[in-house]
Structure formats: structure tokens, C-alpha cells
Computed example of a mutant assay.
Amino acid sequence: MAVVSVQHISKVYGHRLNVVNALNDISFEIEPGEFVGIMGPSGAGKTTLLNMIATIDRPTHGRVLIKDQEVTKMREAKLANFRRQYLGFIFQDFNLLNSLTIRENILLPLALDKLSVAVIESRLNKVSRILGISGLLERYPEEVSIGQRQRVACGRAMITNPALLLADEPTGSLDSKAATELLLYLTEINQQEKTTILLVTHDAFTASYCRRILFIKDGQLFAEIVRSGDRQQFFNQIIDMQATIGGGGRYNAVKTDL
């Protein structure tokens, strides 16, 4: 059973003479344990598509199913509970609370769950070990580096054991070293924990860590590539596809060493 099934979704904004077709009849599926990227030129509809899957917005037409449940028709109260149970979010701007310790920030999504202290501590220890932040748990966000904050945000997203981890430009505010570290951690949880990840990015280097890339252009699914060789080969494929659809070029080739 697919973790995500996007079925002929379209999104229209505005009305009458001022209509914008942000998405137009997009369909695809994401299988358990996949690491999928969404790419495309600015304004192509990448974030709009992510928002549909993240249940932040609803399509004008079509359906989105997550874990075989149609989220496009859920009432808001049920949807809020569904997000908490099945989805994890990593945002570009972290969204950490500076008044809470790193431990408290990571555990925040579990606040409404009736879990034993042993289960909570076990999850926290596992997540913090994978992300290399075990020694930071009693600090506050302002006391750690930007790269470490992003790992904390990743830990908060992982702590609920989500069926789907959603990341919107997660490396956008990081330098190349911190970005590489985060992408290695995402790769580790994908491979070792079998976490299903959907990542939106404009950056070829970031996308090269995915196993499959969906390219969006003018609100439509333009192409798809699947990694079959090493990451350098996949990176070159991504760059070539970006050049084809006008969404990048060779800028990212010098961002950092592969």
C-alpha cells in the first residue's frame, strides 16, 4: 500500500478574470521507505503541491490519500489529529521555541500523547543519537549553531515516528557543511529507520540525496528520474533536467564537493 497517493489534483486560485492554475491534474504515488524529491522552476507549484500533501491546503479538484485515508475530505478537527499521528514537518526556518530547551522542543509533539516516561525517553535517546545532538538536550536553541538547530527541528519531526516526513527547503538557510550533515542524517533515517521522506528543493546538491525526483513545471508533472548509479551521476542527471525545464543550471555544481 502506497504511503501517499495523489490522484488528479488541481489547484485554482482567484476567480473570473484573475484565475491562476497552480496545479493541473497531477497524479503519483510514494511507496513506503522512499526518499522522493520535488523540483521545478520558481513558481512551478512545488510548495503548493507539498501543502496539499501536508494537509495545509486542499486541492480544488482531485484526492490525496495518506496511509489509505483520504485527507482531502477530513474535517479540521480530525485532520489536526491525523497530522499529529502520521506526519512530520521540517521547515526552513526551524520554528523552534527559544523559551524551551532542545529536549523540550523535540518532545513537544508528544505533549498530547499518553506515553510512558520510558517510551518517551527511549524515543528521545534514539532520535538524538541518530542526529548527533545527545549532548545538546539541556541547551536552548539560541545556544547552538544554525546547523544544530535544523537537526533539532528534524528530531522534533521524527519523534512521533511519522508515516511521512515532509521537508520544505530544509537546507535553504544552511551553509554547505551543515547542509551536508543534515542530508546525511536524513539519508540515515531513510535507510535505517525506513522513514518515508518527501522533500521540496530547488537545489541539485540537496536533491541528489533522494532516490527519485519529480519535476514540476507550470503546475504539471513534467518528468521523473530515478537514481540508478552513484550520487554524482544522479546529480548530473538533475542538473541536465533543470537546464531542460529552466529551473536551475550549473550554479549548484560548485556549491560543495559531492
Rank of each mutant, 00 (worst) to 15 (best):
V71I: 15
G43E: 06
A2M: 14
Y13F: 15
T72L: 11
Y86D: 10
N98L: 05
E104Y: 08
K67V: 10
T55A: 13
L50W: 00
E29A: 07
K11T: 12
Q92P: 13
L23H: 11
I38K: 00
L23E: 04
V36W: 04
H15A: 12
I102Q: 05
T47I: 02
T60F: 11
N95Q: 15
N18R: 14
L87V: 03
R83P: 06
F35R: 08
M74T: 08
I38N: 01
F28I: 02
I66Y: 07
N98A: 12
L107I: 09
E31T: 08
L87D: 00
V4T: 04
N21S: 12
G62T: 07
K73S: 14
F82S: 08
L107F: 05
K67Y: 03
S10K: 09
A77I: 11
H61N: 12
R58F: 12
L17T: 13
Q69K: 15
V71C: 09
R16E: 13
G88P: 06
S5T: 07
S10V: 12
H8E: 14
T101W: 05
R84P: 07
I9L: 14
R58T: 14
S27C: 06
D68A: 09
I30S: 02
F94L: 08
N21D: 08
A80R: 15
Q7P: 02
A22S: 15
Y13P: 10
L79G: 02
T72Q: 12
V64P: 10
T47N: 06
L65K: 13
A54K: 00
V6G: 07
V71Y: 08
D25T: 11
P41D: 05
E104C: 06
P41Q: 12
R83M: 05
V20S: 13
L107A: 03
N21H: 15
G37E: 02
I106Q: 07
M74Q: 07
G45K: 00
V36F: 04
G40Q: 02
V20Q: 11
A2H: 14
T60Q: 10
G43A: 05
E70V: 07
N24C: 13
L65I: 06
L107G: 02
G40L: 01
V6Q: 09
F82V: 05
L65N: 11
F94D: 04
R83F: 01
V19K: 15
G62F: 05
F94A: 00
